[in-house]
């Protein structure tokens, strides 16, 4: 099941990111005010250790990438060769629309838009059906959570839901 893989740009980039993130954490630790009591450790120790650990792990992963020791389970390898970035971006768009407009348009409308967008990204082309299903689902969820479970969610400008 496990195979040695050739040098991958993606893996190298990931290792580098982990290394850089570790450096960043260790560096940011200086911003924490140091107050020590009898324990003599203070609030800086754990962040520092975490940062150092990530630096080390990033370096090891980087080394594994170079030597080809980064072992991959190949079952989804075929799929990794043809990523569908359009779907990724469509879902991202749906999430950001929801974030920006949830207070203005209310929960039900923006979340129904999110539902329809995600379904579209997953290849559904029956937009009208999806929109209807989503409105029903979101309205039902909204009523259940706000009326029965006392959770507060923003209502649309129309009021009720």
């Amino acid at each position: 099941m496990i195979k040695k893989s050739s040098l991958s740009r993606g893996q190298f980039f990931i290792s580098l990111s982990i290394f850089a993130f570790g450096v960043y954490i260790a560096y940011q630790t200086r911003d924490i005010a140091d107050t020590q009591g009898y324990e003599q450790l203070g609030p800086r120790l754990f962040p520092m250790l975490t940062g150092l650990a990530l630096i080390l792990l990033g370096a090891v992963l980087g080394w594994q990438t170079i030597t080809g020791d980064w072992r991959d389970t190949p079952q989804e390898k075929k799929a990794h060769k043809c990523p569908d970035w359009k779907a990724f971006l469509i879902i991202t768009g749906g999430v950001f629309v929801q974030m920006a407009l949830v207070k203005i348009l209310g929960f039900v409308i923006v979340t129904a838009v999110l539902f329809t967008t995600v379904a579209y990204a997953f290849g559904s082309r029956r937009v009208l059906r999806d929109a209807l299903i989503s409105l029903t689902l979101c309205a039902a969820a909204f009523l259940l959570f706000t009326r029965v479970l006392d959770l507060s969610l923003p209502a649309s400008p129309l009021g009720i839901i």
């Binding site: 929801q98 949830v102 990204a121 999806d130 969820a141 507060s152 969610l153």
Partner: peptide, 26 residues
């Protein structure tokens, strides 16, 4: 599958936003 994952994301954002109604959490 499209409806399943769309539904999962709806409940994911519902649960998150419901904690304190803050877009920052989204």
């Amino acid at each position: 599958r499209p409806l399943l994952y769309a539904g999962i994301l709806v409940f994911a954002t519902l649960g998150t936003y419901g904690i304190r109604n803050d877009w920052f959490d989204l």
